[in-house]
């Protein structure tokens, strides 16, 4: 049976900072996304080419999804962050089902108390199967949401945290971020374990079905993370939306 480690092994260190296989994979996913985005938007034309057309479809699709959760103004405002999360999570999840993932092995000799031991680790592993990666993204959502709320509502936003709602609101806000991180991590790690076990039990045909299933799960999880992050940001800027609406109505009258 395959060995499944919860913690990501360290591949190498840069200036004393450990780089795990999940961080390495996250870098690959980011690099590919950056390069493809640069190539697609380098020479934009009124009549788009294939790549520009594909990218426009993705952007339009994401914006359409965003406007069904938030209003058009806020969906457009939060779009850069939400779309980045969606694309990074989706691409990382889909990279994770490639044959190279979980296969290539790196052997390192590590010093132990009794001498030396050989530690082996997969070079590539799905970035979101590491709680550190998903927690980092959830932390960004948490901090950004609170900053947006403070900026949009000011004292009105802080009023939510006044007794007796204090404990409930604080726990609720922290729980949102923790739930975001845990759900993505849990789903992707479970998928990795499922694929590894099924591939070991039945090496032919059956794993292909599970790979298809994992591609679907990867898309759904990216969509859920992006939608929830957008919903949190929309919720935090409700005061601003009400003010904007009142100003609009006043101007109309």
């Amino acid at each position: 049976m395959p060995q499944i480690d919860l913690a990501s092994p360290v591949l190498f260190t840069i200036a004393g900072l450990p780089v795990t296989n999940t961080i390495f994979t996250a870098w690959i996913a980011s690099a590919v996304l950056i390069v493809v985005s640069l190539v697609a938007t380098r020479n934009m034309q009124a009549v788009p080419g294939r790549l520009q057309n594909a990218f426009e479809m993705v952007v339009e699709g994401l914006l359409a999804i965003g406007t069904q959760t938030a209003d058009a103004r806020r969906a457009r405002r939060f779009f850069p962050l939400i779309a980045t999360f969606f694309l990074f999570i989706l691409f990382s999840n889909w990279l994770g089902v490639l044959p190279l993932f979980g296969e290539g092995e790196l052997y390192r000799i590590i010093p132990t108390e009794g001498g030396e031991a050989v530690e082996h680790a997969n070079i590539l592993r799905s970035a979101n199967s590491d709680l550190n990666v998903t927690a980092a993204m959830a932390l960004i959502v948490f901090v950004w949401t609170e900053l947006l709320g403070l900026r949009a509502g000011g004292l009105a936003y802080l009023k939510e945290f006044i007794w007796p709602g204090l404990l409930i609101e604080v726990i609720s806000h922290i729980a949102r971020a923790v739930a975001l991180a845990l759900r993505l991590f849990g789903n992707i790690l479970a998928g990795e374990i499922l694929l590894a076990i099924m591939s070991a039990l039945v090496p032919l045909v059956i794993p292909a079905l599970f790979i298809g299933f994992e591609l679907f799960v990867g898309l759904v999880q990216a969509l859920i993370f992006a939608l929830l992050a957008l919903a949190f940001m929309t919720l935090a800027t409700e005061h601003e939306a009400v003010e904007h609406l009142s100003e609009g109505e006043a101007a109309h009258h």
Binding site: M57, E60, G61, A64, I65, Q68, T69, V220, L223, I224, L227, L228, A231
Partner: peptide, 12 residues
């Protein structure tokens, strides 16, 4: 392009 996000929202 039209996307019905009801299912996505429900899952979220």
């Amino acid at each position: 392009m039209r996307f019905d996000v009801t299912l996505g929202q429900a899952m979220a």
